[in-house]
Design a protein around this nucleic acid. Sequence first.
DNA 1: GTAGGATGCTAAC
DNA 2: TTAGCCTCCTACG
Length: 306
Amino acid sequence: MPEGHTIHRLAEDHLARFGGRPVRVSSPQGKFSDSAALLDGQVMTGVDAHGKHLFLGFGGADEPGGTGEPGGTGEPGDAGEPEHTGHTGAAGWGWVHVHLGLFGKLGFGTDPAPPPTDTVRLRLAGGGHYADLRGPTTCALITAPEKQAVHDRLGPDPLRVRDGAGDGHGEKAWTRISRSRTTVAALLMDQKVIAGVGNVYRAEVLFRHGIDPYRAGKDLTRREWDAIWADLVALMREGVRHNRIDTVRPEHTPEAMGRPPRVDDHGGEVYVYRRARMPCLLCGAEIRTATLAARNLFWCPGCQRR
DNA sequence: GTAGGATGCTAAC
DNA sequence: TTAGCCTCCTACG
């Protein structure tokens, strides 16, 4: 689940449910209890997402002493970082920083909320809705400067681009990629290079552009990179909209090809991800898999060129 | 019932 | 490069 599109969608969903209203905050599991007590009853004043990091901003006029900076200085002044639509307003005194990691999940529901199980790290409730966070890598109350530090160590996020792909926000990523001897597969997963791409988008975008995952970054052409970046912007936006990853072009959908839909999991339609040893939808070659930096890589040896 | 894997990342060696 | 974190789900007996 959790690639960048999931996180941006969660930011929107939190804003829609809890934005601008006081929220009941608790940590049934206990690991976030102290912070939850500080936050309980505070107004959710804004949300933000960068790559796979989710930020929920709390606090308004009355600012408890000690905890936070006089927040709200606002935008990452980070060079080349676009303005973004998700960040609404400044948190008066704190942000809840959430990273789902590999297993984390955030689930929404409506009242009456069931009794939380003992794995619920964070429960938000208000306005007839609740949200339960389980298994995150990170769930911490941070200040505005601490939030900024997170932005500073992340590369450009295709989902923070305001209007399409032609505005050059992939430039910063290109600068690093075009000078690197590291494989494109590794670079795409490096959040310092580009933020929000995970294992599925990596495999799929490389397939869609016919690029072998082991090609060195410096051997990518400018034209290829521009196309990849534009594609990620479009694909990930669709991912946010539908809350799942679909990467097959219209002419390759199950309906268009008269083939059975993907059944192996809850995901959308893809070309190569988790299709090892199955025939490529386009050329029929066996999809290959390998381990790279402890993650599973998938590609088509027929369609993707070194 | 149990093992193992998963769309992630970090710290330590 | 590896172990470790944290939870849920599937496959296999």
